[in-house]
Computed example of a mutant assay.
Amino acid sequence: MLPMAMAHDNPPALRLPTLDGQRLVTLASFHDRPVLLNFWSSSCVPCVRELPLLQAQSQTSSMAYVGVAIDDPAPAAAFALRVGVHYLQLAAPPADGAALLRRFGNRLGALPYTVVLNRAHQSCAMRLGAVDTAWLQSSSLACN
């Protein structure tokens, strides 16, 4: 687990397609709203285990929950549908995954990885490894 982080001055760039390929999403899409980014893969066991918790928390949070599947889009979309994940899911090609993770503070490139961005979309909390309810709640309070 990585400790809480100081906010970065400039938000990292993010421009990815949805898993279904219907549209491109940027951080600007979440104007003045905190965002939780959860990087995952369908082949990552801890990622799979935390998805139901993230789905449940996304239903009651004022924060935007966004999954970033570092996976091939078609199998990732089928997997997300099968396990009942309904919050926004984006597709990041596996070849670009390591660079994207580094951009958001994950130098190891390991999954799962979760970053919470404040209203200015600056990183204010990050966690390498599966999240739990306590971490989600404390991060939400710290980053709102």
Rank of each mutant, 00 (worst) to 15 (best):
A69Q: 04
L24V: 05
D72N: 09
P93N: 14
P46V: 00
V35S: 06
F104T: 00
P93F: 06
L51F: 11
P73R: 13
P73C: 08
P73H: 07
P94G: 06
A80V: 03
G21E: 09
R82W: 00
L37D: 09
R49Y: 01
G109C: 07
S140F: 02
M6T: 15
G67N: 12
Q137L: 14
D32N: 14
C124K: 07
A95P: 02
N144H: 14
M6D: 15
A69P: 01
A92S: 12
T60R: 12
H86A: 12
V115H: 04
D20N: 15
L37M: 00
T26G: 07
L101G: 08
P52E: 04
M126A: 14
H121R: 12
A98L: 08
L136H: 06
A74F: 03
G97M: 06
G67Q: 04
C47V: 08
L37G: 00
A125N: 02
S58R: 01
V25H: 12
Q137C: 05
H121T: 07
D132C: 05
W135I: 02
D72P: 07
R102E: 10
L117T: 09
C124E: 14
E50T: 13
L53A: 11
P34V: 04
L101I: 03
P34G: 09
L2Q: 12
A74D: 06
S138I: 06
M126E: 14
S139T: 11
L51S: 04
Y113D: 04
L51K: 03
A64S: 06
A120Q: 14
V131K: 10
L111A: 02
A142I: 02
A28R: 13
S139I: 10
T133H: 14
R107F: 00
H121Q: 14
V45W: 02
T114Y: 03
A78F: 04
A80Q: 02
P17D: 10
V83C: 03
L108P: 00
P12G: 06
F30P: 01
T26P: 06
A91N: 14
A7I: 03
E50D: 10
S61H: 11
F104Q: 03
L117A: 05
A78Y: 00
P73A: 15
L136A: 04
T133C: 00
L53T: 11
V66A: 00
A134D: 15
P75T: 07
L24Q: 15
V66T: 06
S140I: 05
S62P: 10
V66K: 07
G129A: 02
A92L: 03
N10S: 15
L101D: 08
Y113P: 05
Y113E: 00
V116K: 01
A142Q: 12
Y87A: 04
L37F: 08
A7V: 05
G67C: 02
W135K: 04
A110Y: 09
P17M: 07
L37R: 01
N10Y: 05
A142K: 14
A74Q: 11
G129L: 13
L37Y: 03
I70K: 02
R33D: 01
R15P: 01
V45S: 11
H31V: 08
I70A: 08
N144V: 07
H121C: 13
L136E: 06
